[in-house]
């Protein structure tokens, strides 16, 4: 068998699915609040049940988001000249003819995506807790309502892009969030700078 390289650790994979699951649950119930979708609220036994699920789902999401920082935050802050070039060729997503510069463990699109989720995630979590626990402060409630909904826009746009790029657009990527490993030859081709740093190239 070909030699395998581990890209995602077991706790990273586990936390990723907790984060993704809670986030999608929150987005669905959030939409159901926004547009009064009774088909969704009835699944939770009514809108009060859905509120409880949304609120405690928010707790899970917030903790999971904090935990995810140990996996991605440091990488997401580092950019080099190849990253700039990556944007010039749009990551190779708009044409298969361009030459995409060599990448490390994550490309700059992924790194900026992570920062957007952290930023919007902190905003949506803090405003969510304010909506939950500061009901008797009307101006705080109005501000939290606005922030919660602005951050929501970031999620409805960024999350589906991420899902598409992690599945259909990049065949083979999805298994990194299942088994966490990939063959060494493939790793060398897709993440040369990471493999070099790890002494495998």
């Amino acid at each position: 068998m070909a030699e395998m390289v581990r890209k995602s650790s077991v706790d990273e994979i586990l936390n990723h699915w907790i984060l993704a699951g809670s986030c999608i649950l929150l987005m669905i119930t959030g939409f159901a609040f926004l547009f009064h979708w009774e088909a969704v609220s009835s699944v939770f036994g009514g809108v009060n049940g859905m509120k409880t699920v949304h609120n405690y789902g928010g707790v899970v999401f917030s903790l999971s988001l904090l935990y995810s920082m140990r996996h991605y935050f440091k990488d997401a802050l580092e950019y080099d000249a190849d990253d700039v070039q990556w944007f010039k060729v749009a990551g190779g997503y708009l044409s298969h003819k361009v030459t995409v510069p060599p990448m490390g463990k994550y490309n700059p699109g992924q790194k900026l995506y992570y920062l957007a989720i952290v930023g919007a995630g902190i905003a949506i979590a803090l405003s969510g807790f304010a909506l939950w626990f500061m009901k008797d402060n009307a101006s705080m409630l109005l501000l939290a309502h606005l922030v919660h909904n602005i951050a929501f826009i970031v999620f409805v746009i960024a999350v589906p892009v991420h899902v598409y790029l992690g599945t259909l657009a990049n065949p083979g990527t999805f298994k990194l969030m299942v088994s966490g490993t990939l063959p060494l030859s493939e790793a060398k081709r897709r993440y040369p700078k990471w493999m070099k740093a790890a002494g495998k190239m």
Binding site: G46, V47, K51, L131, K135, D136, L141, H145
Partner: peptide, 10 residues
């Protein structure tokens, strides 16, 4: 149906 969010008064 009311979930007691108190948004209406704001």
């Amino acid at each position: 149906k009311c979930i007691g969010c108190k948004l209406c008064v704001t």
